[in-house]
Design a protein around this nucleic acid. Structure first.
Lengths: 220, 220
DNA sequence: TAGATTGTTAATCGATTAACAATC
DNA sequence: TAGATTGTTAATCGATTAACAATC
């Protein structure tokens, strides 16, 4: 029960979901305890890093024993805010919006999608992943009645700005951004970007490097 | 024209697509030249970092002038391998597969989707984003006839392993992984993960932190 | 030429790893 | 108790920033 103050680095935070995932796997396999060493071998990171990361949030382990899988899984979930019952809305009911609405992973981790918004009359009134699709023009009113925490942006680039402004005005505090543009939001709103084409370009670079390497001295 | 050897850090690579994006924007606005300082202000990074990053690949600028936007845009594109005509295939013709097949951003950056694969007889023979959907059972044969460089994984977790093995056997050298599981691939294959639920969990943490901060001493 | 801005070296900062005493 | 493994401090490594001479 240390920390309290000391700001925790974002690189540590970004590793937590991966730990959470592996612990969930262990839990499925009915494994009760794990040492940082064993976990580090499974995950291809150093045991030191695992221990350092976890100790940012408190001493979850026990000397000579390791970590209790179920407890650690639970604790990391709490740290990540998975027990806060965050409500999400999705802007855009295209293929991507549908994919996200149907994605079981979100619900399973405690996020509840309460509305999807689009401007296409053919879609409005329909459903995606069991959630109703509303007119995006009514999003502001909807948020007044049904406060939400997280907004997911699955709209075309040109609609992004207007939708973001409306969401922020409506009290949304976090944005998951699939749009190609970077967002400009007030200080009290956080953004997490998922730039698909950035990922593909990075991959492209890496593929090219690999091919180059295997051509010349690939032996060693 | 330095480098040649000296391995370039992945953190640098991951910034290139963002530079590329901003330069494309400037190009659209018909801006001819830009200094590292101006660009740094637009992008919210330090000018020093931009210069350091670019100098990993060569001296693209000119003292007293800055960088030629068009030239730099072109050069970064080359570095990223966007002029290699990489062919991609998509596994999974669900909503996500459709979203990716329809995503103009990929084609615009020089990636060509040559096939989509699914196991659902109702989908096989159809199209997504103008590309034919084939039986995933025929993927191996397809790759023999139509070599591809990059495979995009938009299949459910349980199908992932089999699909990956088939892709690797078929000569795919890079995987864009949307699946929840981490992949186990040979040394000469690279993987770029897009874990949507990881992003959402990170966002969840950040939202929680912000809320905490605005509650207590949010004034300063 | 004078002014501007790069390319690059050196200084700082932060993140990772190693080591080990504390302790279950 | 002896063995194992944590929590934590110290050492190393890498990434970012600052500074400035080179030069367009």
């Amino acid at each position: 029960m240390r920390n309290m103050n000391k700001k925790i680095s974002l690189v540590v935070i970004r590793r937590l979901p991966r730990y959470y995932r592996y612990l969930g796997e262990l839990l499925n396999q009915n494994i009760k305890r794990i040492s940082s060493k064993e976990l580090s071998e499974k995950m291809n990171v150093t045991a030191s890093q695992i221990r350092q990361d976890l100790n940012c949030f408190g001493g979850f382990g026990q000397q000579g024993y390791g970590y209790n899988v179920e407890e650690l899984y639970y604790e990391i979930g709490t740290i990540l805010g998975l027990r806060n019952g965050y409500k999400t809305i999705i802007a855009g009911a295209g293929y991507l919006g549908h994919a996200l609405a149907n994605y079981a992973g979100f619900e399973k981790r405690g996020f509840k999608t309460i509305g999807i918004f689009d401007s296409d009359p053919a879609k409005i009134g329909g459903q995606a992943g069991g959630v109703t699709i509303y007119n995006v023009a009514d999003m502001g009113d909807f948020l007044k009645e049904n406060p939400a925490d997280i907004g997911i942006l699955a709209v075309p680039k040109m609609s992004t700005k207007a939708v973001v402004d409306e969401m922020v005005k409506g009290g949304i505090k976090g944005l998951l951004n699939f749009s190609y543009v970077d967002l400009d939001v007030p200080d009290d709103v956080v953004v997490e970007n998922v730039h698909l084409s950035d990922s593909l370009m990075t991959l492209s670079y890496l593929v090219r490097e690999k091919k180059k390497m295997s051509k010349d001295g690939g032996g060693l």
